[in-house]
Write a protein that binds this DNA or RNA. Structure first.
Lengths: 337, 337
DNA sequence: CTAGCATGATCAAACGATTGTTCACGAGTA
DNA sequence: TACTCGTGAACAATCGTTTGATCATGCTAG
């Protein structure tokens, strides 16, 4: 709680002298003696610069906002870990803003962005964020990096190779011998969802397999919606022998629902999912997944935001290293026959 | 980006008038006409009070820190959700500080607390936080609420009924007919760990069952450590027929390891775990758990911190509503014979 | 007619740090 | 001796809000 002027008094100098010495700017003219006295006084008083004062003067808060659809899923956790770690190296703090269950008319996003609380924002648009919210975010004038979506307005983005990932997943099923393959995707308005679907369709087309419309669903990425997707497919006269699920959270829902419906995985139906979080291993059966670098995505997002804050550059980056990788576990097998 | 003085100019009044009107303090004498003009001007300029300036003047940042051992687990997620939601009702923001993989000598905690960035801190001590860290936190003078640990220094705490929870879990196994029951606990220095162990021992004593020392382990709460615990028990000449795992994350590790060792759950060994997160349902077999109110714990923690910030009161609360509840799934069964 | 007072608004001093400008002093030069 | 210049440090304004103190005005009451 010691202030600059406390230190100044104790060292017998002016506050400006203390400020200059402690901030260690090159080219300050202070004698060795006073420099020493200032350092001593600061140490004795356990001086720490007051963040709010600094932020007011410099209009830099050294904090960024992370806007996410929800915090209770493993994908968020991985992403968060990457963001957190990169933020630490940049001497930044992370403010979480979850859009989950936001009451109607709640304006926490505009407030987060409009009050000068953060220097920039990382946004992962969920399925349910409105165009209004999007506009608020992009119109704020703050540096924004959108995660896994190309931002229609200004601002940069970081993305994964969704298309390649889904191709990999689909090819795996095709190689196993499946021909009637279903797709459980996200809501069609989502841009990354479109890329994932494209990857699936490409792989199917490349193998000269037809994709029947009723085998392509777009309920969403939550477990419940995965369950819905499976329900829809199970009702068909000839259900698919394998399903590509565009999100691992939804895949967990698919698995639960399969158990409920008495569909054996992988004997009756193979499941391959997008994203490889730690929950893939504890699931039953352990999920065959495509691993995309979520942690690196988080790091890259934070790094890009930092660049954007400090130099105004805004680029759209694709995180391709490490490359998408198929992790084969026990939820996929050749079709029964 | 509009400031008070921008609004003042536009409305043709002084900044102080604007400040008083917009902050809506009772007992301000401003005519209806100017009041209206001020409101209009503020709206037209889309004025938002600058957070840093406000924080500097009032020494209130309307932000709290949440210090946790890690962000990639479902227990954190539940807790976080509660904290977040309560914070929103109190008009507070949450800053995450993970102590996971903190480089040696990293002083992010002292900085978080010493620079006036937050009005208070919520701390969930993990297994690996040093006494030094603890002292830094309690000595900072900031309001602190510790989560699921009684804080040795000042500051309040919120806890769960760990003891009752473990009793419930153990009694479940006893009722199923198990007599040789193992215990996979957290590191012995953790206070909540001691309470959990106590609950286990009580239930065993009440049933007049002996607890052999080699059946009680204390590796920790991470999946890997759960696996270690199972390894240790499996090596015994007579392994237990059931194991109480003091943390669901560790339980997932136990399950994986059991699969690796060819131990069938629940046929060869029953597993019951503490905490009921969403991962319990996707595990194989779905885990029998004791549900403790983690979400409510998060809310209560934030609410207590708020009280502490605003009135200086610091109490130790036990969150007993809803009461611990046994959720029976498929990882427990009567002993084979 | 003027002291007293309520009303409505402005002034100005903080909060703590940063930073361009100024100042005092002594050494070096003409 | 007078002037310049370099050095080491203090002065003072500023960031945007808050808030106690002050002030101008018109009205009531004595």
């Amino acid at each position: 709680m010691a202030t600059l002027s406390d230190v100044a008094t104790r060292a017998g100098v002016s506050v400006s002298a203390v400020s200059r010495v402690l901030s260690e700017k090159p080219g300050v003219r202070v004698s060795v003696a006073t420099r020493q006295r200032i350092h001593d006084a600061a140490k004795e008083l356990n001086y720490r610069p007051n963040f709010t004062a600094r932020a007011l003067k410099s209009s830099r808060t050294h904090a960024v906002g992370l806007v996410v659809p929800g915090v209770t899923n493993a994908i968020f956790a991985e992403l968060m870990r990457g963001v957190e770690e990169e933020a630490r190296t940049k001497d930044y703090m992370v403010l979480i803003a979850s859009t989950e269950r936001l009451p109607e008319g709640e304006e926490s996003i505009p407030r987060l962005m409009g009050e000068g609380r953060v220097d920039g924002v990382l946004v992962q648009f969920g399925d349910h964020l409105s165009g209004d919210d999007l506009r608020t975010v992009t119109d704020s004038g703050l540096p924004v990096i959108s995660i896994n979506t190309i931002n229609p307005g200004s601002g940069g983005s970081v993305r994964l190779e969704d298309e390649a990932g889904m191709r990999l997943a689909t090819e795996h099923l095709i190689e196993l011998g499946h021909t009637r393959i279903g797709y459980a995707g996200g809501v069609p308005t989502s841009e990354s969802g479109q890329r994932r679907l494209a990857g699936f369709l490409e792989a199917m087309a490349a193998a000269k397999l037809t994709v029947e419309p009723e085998l392509v669903t777009d309920f969403g990425y939550y477990p419940k919606q995965g369950a819905q997707a499976l329900d829809a497919m199970a009702e068909l006269s000839t259900p698919p022998t394998a399903v590509v699920v565009a999100n691992i959270n939804a895949a967990h829902g698919v698995l639960s629902e399969a158990r409920r419906l008495g569909i054996r995985v992988p004997e009756d139906m193979s499941i391959v999912a997008m994203h490889d979080t730690w929950t893939a291993e504890i699931a039953w059966p352990p999920l065959t997944c495509v691993r995309l670098p979520l942690y690196e995505l988080g790091r890259a997002a934070m790094a890009s935001l930092w660049d954007n804050i400090n130099s105004g550059t805004a680029e759209d980056r694709v995180i391709a290293d490490p490359a998408p990788e198929l992790i084969v576990r026990e939820s996929t097998a050749p079709p029964a026959r």
